[in-house]
Write a protein that binds this DNA or RNA. Structure first.
Lengths: 292, 292
DNA sequence: CATTATTGATAAGAGATACTTATGAAACGG
DNA sequence: CCGTTTCATAAGTATCTCTTATCAATAATG
């Protein structure tokens, strides 16, 4: 049964359309015995009767008609799937893209939209995780391209800047009340080894602030929720807190840190896949709109 | 490209899942060189690179992953379509069923429902037309089984009764007004050679009625609409005028004809296809609920 | 650092498939 | 009744596919 090839299906469909083996042979540029043999092969592989002799011609059995009916859409799909390479010059492939959460919130959707419209043959498999993990996966070959935060310079990596985002010290109502009382701030941030974590620590040091605990959460979205609902204060990217600022759930409490989060796109420097290299080129030319 | 067989797809998918050619070979009960050859064959047929050497293993290219992604559903469909014969003992096939319009309105839907539930592998292609045409198509091999009206006894035909339907002389408002004025009735019916036509003529003769024209329409549904809207009177099957009687658009004007329309199911007596013969058996056991 | 195991490529030969040409048998049409 | 159409069959050839055996490269291990 596994030995049935595409031309078997095609042959069946052409016979069903043209009515005779002979006509099908002509249409398919082969001989009538070849057509007979193909059908015989199908019948034996599937162990069903597809045609039945009737007078001097062959007619489809009920089962055969069922098969034709089933194969018609299958054949169409096959053509679209397997013919795809030649159909236009563009790149075709599935590319596994990793992204840090902040990068995801800031530039990913713009990039994917750009890819969808200008590289229609390319499908993206996006995975969101911490920058550190993204790098691992990229080097291990589990991801093909990653967006990440902060300048990275690992050997065997090729990177390009794609934009940056301003950061701000933000707190919710309870957090601001706590600060107003003169209590030491409960600082929240991403786990160690993340750029946001480093920036937060540095900014605290510059200000000479002693924190009452330095809590972490590995998910920025949750981090925001935590700060909104609790007494914490955090350095957060402005691109991710638009709605919270608008409705007053978060407010800036101190002067903004000098540093912004800088995004880069990275691939392995020896990446051999032309589709991925092309995607990298596009990504480096794609720069996110500036945010202030 | 047409030379790609099912085992090529299967091979690709198994490699994608298991990671190495060797493991795939074991899983598929063959040898590693065979797997290599299959992939090479696919790559040459599609002229794309599916795998790329990386260290001592082969990894999917972006295009290769795309292919895997595309083939996954295709493969599933294939299995369901081609494996169908063995999956259960029941009959499988597409059967072309013809039916006269009245038979269609009276018993067809019950029969199709019965087939759908008790013969899930069978697909019906129903065609509605006049009884005479149904017979032609059956004998010509364009239909496999037909429901038709009136006792037929053509050579090479095997028939069985499946029910009958009472008839009534019906007229719309204008038609009844015309009759009340004592004018000769405008009679409507199906074209000649149809049982309804014959019954209508016979009934008129029995009553000694002279019609003012004997109009025909080859479609019962339209016939009903015509009678409802116009001055006509017609012998119509009660199964098809339920709503018209209920809302008073049609009313019985004379005594009902003695004869009812008797439905039969027919196949070619030498029908070789077991699926069709089985369907015929079921149809003959399936008798429509009596109507009065 | 040497050894061993893993992964896939390659080559050669056997076996299976698929195609072509030539011919035959049955059925249809005039 | 004869020619035509339609498909089956047979024989020969070309092609494809698989298996066995071996090799090269790389990763893992002691």
């Amino acid at each position: 049964m596994k030995r049935i090839a595409l031309y078997h299906l095609e042959t069946l469909l052409v016979i069903a359309r043209l009515g005779t083996f002979h006509a099908a042979a002509e249409r398919l540029g082969t001989t009538q015995p070849a057509i007979s043999a193909r059908i015989r092969e199908m019948e034996s592989q599937l162990s069903i009767a597809i045609f039945r002799r009737e007078g001097r011609r062959m007619v489809l059995t009920a089962r055969g008609r069922q098969l034709v009916q089933d194969c018609e859409p299958l054949w169409a799909q096959f053509e679209s799937v397997l013919m795809r390479p030649g159909e236009f010059g563009g790149a075709v492939g599935v590319v596994r893209v990793g992204s840090g959460e902040i990068a995801a919130a800031s530039i990913l959707s713009g990039f994917t939209a750009e890819v969808e419209s200008s590289m229609p043959g390319v499908t993206l498999e996006v995975e969101i995780d911490l920058t550190a993990k993204m790098l691992q996966q990229l080097l291990a070959g589990t991801s093909d391209m990653v967006f990440l935060a902060g300048p990275v310079a690992a050997p065997g990596l090729r990177t390009a800047p794609v934009g940056d985002v301003p950061l701000a010290w933000l707190a919710g109502a309870k957090g601001r009340a706590r600060l107003a009382n003169g209590a030491a701030p409960r600082v929240w941030s991403l786990p160690q080894n993340s750029p946001l974590h480093t920036i937060t620590r540095d900014s605290l040091q510059v200000r000479g602030i002693t924190a009452a605990g330095f809590a972490t959460c590995n998910n920025v979205r949750s981090l925001i929720d935590i700060v909104v609902a609790g007494e914490g204060v955090a350095v957060l990217p402005l691109t991710m807190v638009g709605t919270e600022l608008a409705r007053g759930a978060l407010q800036e409490v101190w002067q903004r840190p000098d540093r912004r989060i800088r995004f880069e796109v990275a691939i392995r420097s020896n990446e051999p896949d032309p589709v991925i290299r092309e995607l990298f080129e596009r990504a480096s030319r794609f720069v996110m709109p500036p945010v202030s």
